[in-house]
């Protein structure tokens, strides 16, 4: 019954309108972070916004330094499913960086909000 309640077209329309509306706000907030590193192939940036890792999957070369930046109003974490890396709580506008020295597929999630999941695919150049 709960699922049906929110599957109604009207509820979805409201939700969609809000997603679009706040998406713009989150982008603006990110742009306001002064020291955000420029994203490059070997130093990509994952933005955490609206309880989502964006992009959810990134592919990087071995040795890449990946930085997560939290654009949300709440803290999040970045924790590898295999425990190979684990951030401290990343508060609003804070960041966490990890260098991927070995090729592989690294699944990770937020330990506070475990529905938040992402993946880093590390390939030999």
């Amino acid at each position: 019954m709960l699922q049906q309640a929110f599957a109604s077209p009207r509820a979805l329309a409201v939700a969609l309108a809000l997603v679009l509306g706040t998406g713009a706000g989150a982008g603006a907030a990110l742009a306001a972070i002064p020291a955000a590193p420029p994203a490059t192939a070997s130093a990509p940036v994952v933005t955490i916004g609206n309880f989502t890792f964006g992009p959810m999957t990134i592919t990087v070369p071995v040795g890449a330094r990946v930085t997560w930046v939290n654009a949300d109003d709440v803290p999040h974490t970045v924790v590898a499913v295999d425990n190979s890396f684990r951030s401290k709580p990343i508060d609003s506008d804070e960041r966490f960086t990890f260098t991927f020295a070995k090729p592989g597929v690294y699944s990770y999630f937020c330990s506070l909000h475990p529905r938040m999941v992402g993946k880093v695919i590390v390939k030999r150049p």
Partner: peptide
């Protein structure tokens, strides 16, 4: 309220 926004944030 559940689902009534882009995320469960404040």
């Amino acid at each position: 309220a559940p689902g009534q926004g882009p995320s469960p944030g404040p």
